[in-house]
Nucleic acid binder design. Structure first.
Lengths: 226, 226
DNA sequence: CGGATGCTTTGGCTAGGACCGAAGCATGAG
DNA sequence: CTCATGCTTCGGTCCTAGCCAAAGCATCCG
């Protein structure tokens, strides 16, 4: 009642089932329209409109108007990290939705987390990079070592370009299904994009799950050995 | 609305101002009693009781019953991480509150906990006894070793008499200022009484603070070296 | 044994906010 | 221009959940 930022307003915002569903839907990283999010939340357009206005006002979402459509997306990686953290807590306390289908298993194997790779494969990548000293923990958090820069260059990722931007290159993100860190930040995003471009992976149309191609899995294992 | 863990229940739990205040208060790492948390949240005892039950049921808090008090603490580092993440988000959108002042320093140094010594001095005593093997952790909890019995006898405490009573001789008690264990049980009470009788300490009038005399502090340091 | 203290349960009150239908604005299509 | 589509505002209903007082247990004290 007397110190620190006011958590409760923000948490209450996420605490509505409809708004939470919208946020989770946006964890896929793609921007969605108001109507799509209304369907996702299972409410009518007016209700969704109110929800989306409140989420935007609170700074959780960014809006982009395009013609008569309005596209919403998560405002930042921090927002995604909090949502992922909540998923982890909910998962560990048996609050999962009663729907442990095959899609759920696929999600645990590999999925999109905002704009980077998560799940067992995401954690594998992180561990592999860390074990080989390509990723190091510095005073300011996670940093790419010199060897790591070379490695990323070999993958076709221009680290220099990433470093000129204001957003952090390397960040940890807590994986809700593995309960361990995976790689986020602009580097995580770039590597994910590179894997998608290279045909290593493709995204499942209806969920956040990510499916590896046969050859893609081989390349992934070669690039990020356990 | 169709995938992953159910975030909204958890977020709604944190989304109440009272419960959020409790969680923030517990971010310091100390365990707090129900009454203290009620004050922190600015609600009456019945209301707080309901909140705390819900937080515990959801796995966000752990409970430790001690006499007629109930100590609550954050359940895990994951919970703390989520709260911290929410604080970060709230802070970045300018929703901070005022800072608190420092608390009674004397209480942190030494105080009465029911009938035994608590605070830095209480923890020092506990650590000293444990480090010298006078206090050991057995299957049934804390026990006094044979050497410990001799030591207690030297202090003038009749351990044999304590052991005939029904109440446990040695118990751990969670120290709220140090957030570590100190010695409770009938032995803790007996040692405290002996220190009071011997003029090592005297109790401050209205508060729970305990003040060491000059000579008493010397004897204490000799009996319970760091 | 009372009497005091800390926590919980119960009951009843109330406010906040989630929801929808209908009407109101924009923008784009024909 | 007129119509259709996408989103927002308004008005009203309904239900959840927070809140407290009072009574009920449990524990400790003298």
């Amino acid at each position: 009642m007397r110190e620190g930022p006011d958590i409760s307003r923000l948490a209450a915002l996420i605490g509505d089932p409809g708004r939470a569903a919208m946020l989770v839907a946006l964890m896929g990283g793609q921007a969605l329209t108001a109507a799509e999010l209304a369907a996702e939340a299972g409410v009518t357009a007016p209700t969704a409109s109110g929800h989306l206005a409140r989420l935007s006002d609170a700074g959780l979402l960014t809006v982009r108007k395009q013609g008569r459509h309005k596209y919403f997306a998560l405002a930042s990686a921090e927002v995604a990290a909090v949502v992922e953290g909540l998923m982890g807590l909910a998962d560990s306390h048996g609050l999962t939705r009663t729907r442990p289908g095959p899609r759920d298993e696929g999600m645990r194997e590999a999925r999109v987390c905002y704009n980077h790779l998560a799940g067992r494969r995401g954690v594998q990548m992180y561990d592999s990079l860390a074990a080989r000293g390509l990723l190091e923990v510095g005073a300011e958090g996670l940093v790419l070592s010199q060897a790591g820069r070379v490695f990323a260059g070999g993958l076709g990722v221009d680290v220099g370009a990433l470093e000129t931007a204001r957003t952090p290159v390397c960040r940890e993100c807590l994986d809700w299904s593995e309960r361990r860190s995976h790689l986020a930040g602009s580097l995580g995003r770039a590597i994910f994009a590179r894997m998608e471009r290279g045909g290593w992976i493709r995204r499942d149309g209806e969920s956040r799950a990510v499916v590896f191609s046969r050859s893609g899995l081989g390349e992934f294992e070669a690039a990020f050995p356990v």
